Simulated scan of single mutants.
Amino acid sequence: MSEKHPEFTLNNGITMPAFGLGVFQSSPEDTRSAVKMAIESGYRLIDTAAAYNNEQQVGEGIRASDIAREDIFVTTKLKPADYGYDAALRAFDTSMQKLGLEVLDLYLLHWPLPMQFADTLASWKAAERLLAEGRTRAIGVCNFRPLHLQQLVEQSETVPALNQVELHPFLVQNDLREANRKLNIVTQAWSPIGGVNRYWESGDDPLVHPAILTLADKYGKTAAQIILRWHLDRGVSVIPKSVNPQRIQENIDVFDFSLTQEEIRAIDALDQNRRGGPDPDARMPGRPHQQ
């Protein structure tokens, strides 16, 4: 990962910015302006999903910016309701129409659905076809545990380029990160600063933990910036969500410092192995604000 222009090289050779904007729970009205602001602030990765109902506004925000399309990396996701080979192909077409794009950069399966894994596998084979046809530059998954990855890899031709998972100081996911690393899969964190805990009031907030605040004071940074830097120093891609212009600019201002190994381990030690979002082993994840 280059620090000056941070990016990862995916396992099929294409490059992806390490830092991006997430638009989970961003309203259509807010999404357009947030995407435009993020691009103007230096973001070059935008992450959305069919389930977020804001793909159209993501496309509009990209076109409203002054940055060329080829310089922006766009991710969207297949929702479980559209799993299945033919259904996935149709859903991809719908997403592309809403985004207003000819070629997608990264297409992800949103959940593993282990109890309906035949549908997951059929969807993955559809994604492989889209990759082979050049309609998407890379394919990957979300919320897959090591066993899910093993099953997928054993029954298909393509190793996912990326696995996007819930990951923050209270759920550090070291075993999953290692499983991804062994397969040359990039780990990407959704809810990287622990926002999922605030959405559903499921526990403490990493942003007010004394260990994080102490480091924020030391480096003259916000607690969010400390956590985002922790992810990057561990080799994890991040897609923090915000529609606040100041926060959008603030979040990406993390490339002028690094944490020490001791400080990284101190944040690792905050792990509670407590998931704030849906259980990846659920038959059909469906909490009110599904990530």
Results as ranks from 00 to 15, higher is better:
residue 277 G to Q: 12
residue 78 L to E: 03
residue 4 K to Q: 15
residue 139 I to E: 07
residue 49 A to F: 13
residue 3 E to G: 07
residue 51 A to W: 09
residue 140 G to H: 03
residue 219 Y to P: 03
residue 170 F to G: 14
residue 135 R to N: 01
residue 36 K to I: 01
residue 130 L to F: 01
residue 39 I to P: 08
residue 183 L to H: 02
residue 212 I to N: 02
residue 287 R to G: 10
residue 163 N to R: 04
residue 193 I to N: 12
residue 100 G to T: 09
residue 8 F to P: 08
residue 228 L to M: 14
residue 24 F to T: 04
residue 73 F to L: 05
residue 264 I to L: 10
residue 168 H to G: 05
residue 242 S to D: 08
residue 32 R to K: 14
residue 215 L to A: 02
residue 8 F to C: 07
residue 45 L to R: 11
residue 258 S to D: 05
residue 11 N to K: 06
residue 217 D to H: 14
residue 283 R to V: 09
residue 207 L to Q: 13
residue 87 A to D: 07
residue 238 V to C: 14
residue 100 G to V: 09
residue 179 A to V: 06
residue 207 L to M: 12
residue 68 A to L: 10
residue 99 L to W: 00
residue 53 N to H: 12
residue 102 E to W: 04
residue 191 S to I: 05
residue 109 L to F: 00
residue 71 D to I: 06
residue 159 V to H: 04
residue 116 Q to A: 04
residue 179 A to R: 09
residue 56 Q to V: 00
residue 28 P to T: 14
residue 101 L to S: 00
residue 230 W to S: 09
residue 196 V to F: 15
residue 257 F to W: 06
residue 115 M to G: 01
residue 163 N to H: 04
residue 37 M to L: 01
residue 50 A to R: 09
residue 275 R to Q: 11
residue 107 Y to Q: 08
residue 189 A to G: 06
residue 130 L to S: 00
residue 174 N to C: 10
residue 288 P to H: 01
residue 107 Y to G: 07
residue 238 V to D: 07
residue 17 P to I: 04
residue 51 A to T: 09
residue 24 F to R: 05
residue 74 V to R: 06
residue 97 Q to V: 13
residue 28 P to Y: 13
residue 217 D to W: 10
residue 19 F to C: 09
residue 124 W to P: 06
residue 159 V to P: 05
residue 288 P to K: 06
residue 4 K to P: 03
residue 15 T to V: 11
residue 245 P to Y: 10
residue 1 M to K: 15
residue 138 A to C: 03
residue 84 G to H: 10
residue 100 G to M: 05
residue 58 V to M: 06
residue 128 E to S: 06
residue 180 N to M: 10
residue 94 T to D: 05
residue 201 E to V: 02
residue 233 D to H: 09
residue 286 G to C: 09
residue 31 T to R: 12
residue 216 A to Q: 11
residue 252 I to W: 13
residue 83 Y to W: 08
residue 283 R to H: 12
residue 19 F to V: 15
residue 120 T to F: 03
residue 16 M to C: 07
residue 221 K to R: 15
residue 94 T to N: 08
residue 11 N to G: 04
residue 192 P to D: 10
residue 281 D to E: 11
residue 157 E to S: 13
residue 185 I to E: 11
residue 196 V to I: 14
residue 192 P to M: 12
residue 99 L to P: 00
residue 33 S to P: 02
